[in-house]
Simulated assay, not measured.
Amino acid sequence: MRKHYHLSTILLILLIGALSSCLGFGHRKFGSDYSYNGAFHKYRTFNFITHASEEDSVTLKNYEVLKKYIRERLEIQGYEYSDKKPDLLVSYYIYYNDLNMKGYEQEEFDIWLVNNEEPTKEHEAYKPIKMYMSQGTLLVTLLDHKKQNAVWQGYTSGVLSDPTSESTAYLNRAVRTIFDQYRVFRKGYLRENSSNN
């Protein structure tokens, strides 16, 4: 059964998510990086790939909870879950220990999107930066299934440093914090919903 969300409900959820992400995450590091070749306004469907770090039941439970929250968020933004040739593949991983990772110094994603609706052959220069992430970093990566490369990644630290923890509230907040940085709706979704209202 296909879910339909009213435009006002969508905007309210995104606003609440943005505000709640600020609360309790002030001392935690979060951010995102994107590919200049991503066709962000064309993606419509998604599915998952992921790799649990351990095979114990608690870790697998955390991954299932993350999958549920990520799916809900993408569906609110108009994307449809699909088993057949999805446009995006979603990978997510929790690093329980401290992590040194590479990010990129880039223009804000929202601003870049407005100015670059279509990918061009001209490549902007990537400016890599090194980042230190504290225990319990959640990394979510969106991959263009057709091109077989990553087009966006979001991350936040201090999520869950203990793999045996059964608290899912942190996971929910972490997903909201990450996807508040990916405010891209499926092409035509907002127009469809505004005409239905």
Results as ranks from 00 to 15, higher is better:
residue 66 L to T: 03
residue 181 Q to P: 00
residue 131 M to C: 08
residue 162 D to A: 08
residue 171 L to A: 05
residue 40 F to P: 00
residue 181 Q to R: 05
residue 40 F to I: 00
residue 133 M to Q: 08
residue 12 L to S: 14
residue 187 K to P: 05
residue 53 S to W: 08
residue 83 D to A: 15
residue 124 E to C: 08
residue 146 K to M: 10
residue 94 I to L: 13
residue 193 N to K: 13
residue 83 D to Y: 15
residue 14 L to R: 10
residue 82 S to T: 04
residue 61 K to Y: 15
residue 141 T to R: 03
residue 163 P to F: 06
residue 60 L to D: 09
residue 86 P to C: 04
residue 188 G to E: 06
residue 72 E to I: 11
residue 26 G to T: 14
residue 135 Q to L: 08
residue 137 T to Y: 01
residue 140 V to I: 10
residue 65 V to I: 14
residue 130 K to V: 07
residue 104 Y to P: 00
residue 117 E to I: 15
residue 166 E to G: 13
residue 78 G to F: 03
residue 187 K to Y: 13
residue 88 L to E: 04
residue 130 K to I: 07
residue 145 H to R: 13
residue 97 N to F: 10
residue 79 Y to T: 02
residue 92 Y to E: 02
residue 44 R to N: 12
residue 185 F to K: 02
residue 131 M to P: 02
residue 7 L to W: 09
residue 158 G to N: 03
residue 191 R to Y: 10
residue 153 Q to S: 08
residue 188 G to M: 08
residue 132 Y to L: 12
residue 15 L to H: 11
residue 78 G to Q: 04
residue 115 N to A: 12
residue 118 E to G: 07
residue 178 I to Q: 00
residue 34 Y to E: 01
residue 2 R to V: 15
residue 160 L to H: 06
residue 49 I to S: 10
residue 10 I to W: 04
residue 184 V to E: 01
residue 25 F to G: 06
residue 88 L to M: 14
residue 6 H to G: 11
residue 140 V to S: 00
residue 18 A to D: 08
residue 123 H to Q: 13
residue 138 L to H: 02
residue 32 S to P: 00
residue 22 C to A: 12
residue 47 N to L: 02
residue 127 K to F: 00
residue 99 L to P: 03
residue 46 F to Q: 06
residue 186 R to A: 12
residue 87 D to Y: 09
residue 44 R to L: 14
residue 153 Q to C: 04
residue 46 F to K: 04
residue 66 L to Y: 03
residue 31 G to V: 00
